[in-house]
């Protein structure tokens, strides 16, 4: 199903069911057509803002556990949310841990052909402007601007998470928009990057992580974006009691912070790429 049609079906579906919903979380066009930002809709008249396109890469499920009351309400009103395949896995993980109630949600699942990593796109074409539309057609990402139509092979512009996605289709949903898709890779290729990395020498691996983590500024944005990092103000990276990390900026603190993030996500991370 083409992207515009999906957007339309998406809007129509929410319109039909809006009586049961108090809020719809989806994506809208950002400050230009090259950006999609989250949108929170409380009035049916605003549903026209909703869009679906390959720029809708943000995982919206994080808002449910962190910012909203996701328990069942007395009036039985639900929260409508749009999810891609990967986002739906985050939802499942949150439901498993009782952070949100399945019955509180009206989930609209969208089979996803992959999302475009804007940084990669801008890297290839830094002068990109006046974009009208971004879409994925088979193995190509198509960017239409006022002047021209550009085509990029998907390996060059898709987000990394999308190139190794095994679950393009939502695993949990009330309504699915469009037909299920086939994953782009086979299961045995899923961890090829890790396997490759494992063949290197241990000292090199240590040195690699040292150089990489040394660039970390501990802004905690990775933690804040992560839908499963639910400790919020009690995060042990910031709490003083227990005190795990100091304010010092050394490789040890940086390294340990990433270990905290990694180990706290063990068995929970759905690799949504946030």
């Amino acid at each position: 199903m083409p992207m515009d049609e999906k957007t339309k079906t998406l809007q129509e579906d929410f319109e039909k069911n809006f009586a049961d919903l108090e809020l719809v979380i989806g994506w809208e066009t950002g400050f230009d057509r090259l950006h999609a930002t989250p949108v929170f809709i409380r009035q049916p008249s605003e549903l026209g803002k909703l869009v679906w396109n390959p720029l809708c890469s943000q995982n919206l499920s994080g808002y449910l556990a962190k910012n909203l009351d996701a328990s069942i309400q007395e009036d039985g009103k639900k929260i409508g949310i749009c999810v891609k395949g990967c986002d739906s896995r985050s939802l499942v993980a949150l439901i498993q841990e009782n952070f949100i109630d399945r019955d509180r949600l009206y989930i609209v699942g969208i089979p996803c052909e992959g999302t475009v990593d804007l940084r990669r796109l801008m890297h290839l074409k830094p002068s990109l402007e006046n974009v009208r539309k971004v879409d994925i057609e088979g193995d190509e990402a198509v960017v239409e601007t006022d002047q021209e139509t550009l085509r990029f092979p998907i390996e060059n512009v898709l987000a990394r998470k999308c190139l190794r996605c095994l679950y393009p289709n939502p695993v949990i949903y009330d309504t699915m928009i469009g037909t299920p898709l086939k994953p782009r890779i086979s299961e045995d290729k899923l961890y090829s990057a890790v396997e490759k990395f494992d063949t290197s020498d241990r000292k090199q691996r240590l040195a690699f992580w040292k150089t990489e983590f040394n660039r970390c500024i501990r802004c905690y944005a990775c933690r804040n974006a992560c839908p499963l990092c639910v400790c919020q103000d009690n995060c042990i990276a910031e709490s003083r009691k227990p005190k795990w990390l100091t304010q010092r900026d050394g490789i040890r603190e940086k390294f340990l912070f990433h270990m905290i993030h990694g180990l706290h996500l063990a068995g929970r991370c759905t690799e949504c790429g946030e």
Binding site: F197, E212, C269
Partner: peptide
């Protein structure tokens, strides 16, 4: 032995590959 730089996998060039940590964790599990 030549080192395999995992950042050479799709990446705009300057992200810290923190995903790799989580991927490894999931692979183990």
């Amino acid at each position: 032995m030549a080192f395999i730089w995992p950042a050479a996998v799709p990446n705009a060039g300057n992200e810290i590959p923190t995903m790799l940590i989580k991927e490894k964790m999931n692979q183990i599990l």
